[in-house]
Every structure is written in C-alpha cells, then in structure tokens.
Design a protein around this nucleic acid. Sequence first.
RNA 1: CGGGGCGUGGUGUAACGGCUAACAUGCUUGACUUGGGAUCAAGUGACUCCGGGUUCGAAUCCCGGCGCCCCGACCA
Length: 484
Amino acid sequence: MSSELKNNKVEKKITGRNEDYSQWYLDIVASADLAEWGPVKGCMVIKPYGYALWEKTQQILNEKFKETGVQNAYFPIFIPEKFLNKEKDHIEGFAPEVAVVTHAGGKKLDEPLIVRPTSETIMYETFSRWIHSYRDLPLLINQWANVVRWEMRPRIFLRTVEFLWQEGHTVHETESEADGRARQMLEIYKDIAENIMAIPVITGTKSDSEKFAGAFKTYSLEAMMQDGKALQFATSHNLGQNFAKAFDVKFLDKNNTVQYGWQTSWGLSTRTIGGLIMTHSDDKGLVLPPKIASIQTVITTIVPSEKDREMINQKAQELNILLKKAGVRTHVDSRDIRPGEKYYEWEKKGVPIRIELGPRDVASDSAMLVRRDTGEKTKTTMSSLVGDINSLLNNIQQNLYVRALDYRKAKTKKVDSWDEFVKAIEEGNFVLAHWSGEKNVEAQIKEETGATIRCIPFDQTNESGKCIKSGMPSTGRVIFAKSY
RNA sequence: CGGGGCGUGGUGUAACGGCUAACAUGCUUGACUUGGGAUCAAGUGACUCCGGGUUCGAAUCCCGGCGCCCCGACCA
C-alpha cells in the first residue's frame, strides 16, 4: 500500500468494510501514514507516526515492569540451531517458520544459525549458567527485540515476517510463584489494553491445541475487532519445568537439594497496534484513544485574510504552550492551506481533539473544540480551555472503551445448539458454548466452521451442560470465534 | 503451497485487435482564495511488469516467467 493513498479521499477509499474488511484496514494504515510494506515480502516499514504508538506502549510497559522488579536485558538475534532442538514441542511449533542462516563471511557455516523466532532457547541456555542457588531467584528478565517468523500470509501489523515485541522471561523456585507471575503479567497487559488503548479484552486459558509450543499453560487476552473476529492481544505462559529440564536451569534449594526452575514467558508485540487500529477506526480513518495518541490535540489555524495571519499564529502558539504546560501532547498546524484540508488530514490520523482557531475565536477569546470520536463541536473560552481539554480527553478515552465493550457485548452470543452455533459464528460473533475438553472435537469444529477456541475465560460461572458438538458433559462455557 | 482476481504516467482508473494510449488526481508556476478536501490558466509526467508468439497491426489474443491483492492451511 503506497503512501500516496493519504492524498486520496478517504470516503472513497474506505467503504464496504464488512465486505472487504482487510482492505478497509489497510487503507486506514496507509491513509493515517502508520506503515507500509518494505521491499521484502511480509516485512513492514513502520513510519514515524506509527512508531510513536509503539514507543508510547514501550514507555508504559517499561514503567510497569520496573514496578514489579523486571529488568531489561538483551540477547543475540542468532541462535545455534541445536538449541532449538532441545525442547520437543518447541521445535515442532517453530521449525516450519524459522529463518536459517547457512552462509556468512563468504563461507558455509559449520553449524547453521537460526534467526530468533522467540528467545526461550538462547536465554535459558544462558540462565542455566546464571542460576546456582535459590538466592539467585526469582530471575526476572525482559528484552525488547525484533523476531522473525516466516509466515505464509503476512498482514500489516497483525502478522509480519519481522516484528517488534517485548518478551519477558522469569525463573522461580516454585510452581505457584511462577504461575502467579504469569497471571500478574497478564493483568498488566489487560491494564494496558483496557485503560490505555481502550480495547476491552477477555482473559483466559488457551486450550491445549492453541497453547504456546513448549508451554505448560498459556494465558491470553482476546479482543474483538469490528468485523467480529478475535485478535490475541498478548500472551503469558506458565512454562512449568519443560524448558528448565531441556536447558538445565537448576538451583540448590534451602534443603541443599537440586531443583529445576519453574519458568514463565510473556510477550506483547506490534500486533497490538493493529488491534488498536481495528478496534476504533471509522470511515474517516484512524481514531486514537488519548492516552496512546502521540498528538492529543491539534490546533488548526483559520486565516481568512492575510492581515490576521500573524495574530492568529501567535495566539495558536500561546495556546500550544498553555496546553504543553498542562501536560497535553499538542501540535500546531498553521500551514497556509484551506482549513478543510487540515481537518481531513488530522481526522485520518486519528487525533482525539481538534482545536479550531480563527479570527472570530480570537476576537471572542474562545476556541472551537471538535472531538474525533463523535464529531461533536463545543465552544470554549480561553480561561476554561485547559480544564475543558482535559475532561474531554478523559471523556473520549472512556467513550472509546465503552463503545468497544458495548459492541463486543452485542456480538457475544450464548448458544446451546449446533445450528445456532454455526449461524452465530458465520455472523461474526464471540460464541459462548459448552465444550467437554476433547481435542478432536475442537479440531472438528474448526474444520467445519473455521472457529477456534479463543480461550477458556477466567470469568465464568460453573454450569453443567453438554458439548455443543459432541454432546459430552461439560462444566463450563468457552469462547469460540474466528480469529486473526 | 492450493483456489480466485489483477498488472497501463507518482496515485486511482479508461481504451472493440485499428487515429498521437484517454480521464481524474498529484506535482510545478501564476492568479484568485481560506469557518469542511476550492476555482481558473499554463506546464510536468507511460518503452501499457518482463520474455516469446499470433497478426498488415497487440495495452487488448496465446504461451512462459515475475510481481501484487483476496480467500484457505500456518500464526503473536
């Protein structure tokens, strides 16, 4: 998708999103100037405006990590191939999509190197040398990195061959401590999703067939996109001792006996930016929640006659400084183009509030505020501007979350018959249905409807019922949906 | 890797096998303008993806390649 799309009229480009949701989404990405495809298929160029969203995510996550004792570190991108082979499920899960370096420095390598698809293996090989005693635990490490997974069908932001993420890896003395950490990190992700990105998520456990390659248990957050499909926002794994045994991550406990460590890993990737776009965008373009927006307010000047230009620009700068002092991320657009053109541009970029400033406003010591989520206009005076902006930003943040939550609620169906199930899935819903835990039934449902078990939600009532497909007894409902 | 669609100025499209490949938009210059993408004038810009073939004649038909998009399998 070319950047030139930003010059085309969005109304014309972004239509019929139900029929062609992918195209609609790509158009949002292109017209908001977030990213584009690079020369290698599946590899994405993230443009400054898109990268700013990732930086904000990084900043917030880093603060949270620090609060919980997690330290940042960095491990190599190249991993000896034999490392990957040490954990059976892990190699089976990742082998088909790893990129392998066989030649370097003009020679064939004695041993091929893989480009990390994830760093469990290289980190744990290292951890085994770092950890000797229970006094070395817990070990809480995070790294910000790029990883490579040679996906068959890339999708911008959602599934790119190379992507950016953070991957946290921890080692603990006990199983319950490890599980607690996995759950704690999941809660941090939930906080980011709901309170920063305004994306409602459902937390739960993955079924065995959906869990991470090599994990004991996988927890995930599932969000609903506007076409009703599910997007896995982030995951957190309780790895048990699988990797510890494969990589010899051992320690001497208080009783002087050798124990294997209990491990976790958890990650959040640039995919979340895709989720952000797909949750809130509308037919005018991107819609950003204020807390993640790199520009929260844009001051657009309106200059009908040249004699007012200097005066209006000066007023705009004053406003800008006033807002900056109040902690608002703001920007002045005083370009000499027609106002309508500016409005459309910032709407495409999803800026939460537009402040219109023209001669009439300056004369009456006021400004016009236009919110991106509803398009509603309000007039404010200079004296109450900062207060109004702050409450409006909070209001938009809240409204986006509630809007997305209401949408998900309206598209979540509880069903008890196979016919209803098939229909509900076809219509793009989250479907709450009974499942007895049988793997082959899960596979059969996927085969017949395209729906997978997104998660077994934590938040559920015990309820006896019969599996939607097999009729076998079940004790609770799981969430089925089509997914990205 | 399967199924479908498509490759034409920077971008989006048009052109029955037949005139100098058209229209819109963008970009440049100038005028006039500025409370929702203005307007006018002049200019700029394409070996019609590549390689073969059929034909008096190919953007158009045929064969082969390459590339893109959509849908599956795979996946954060």
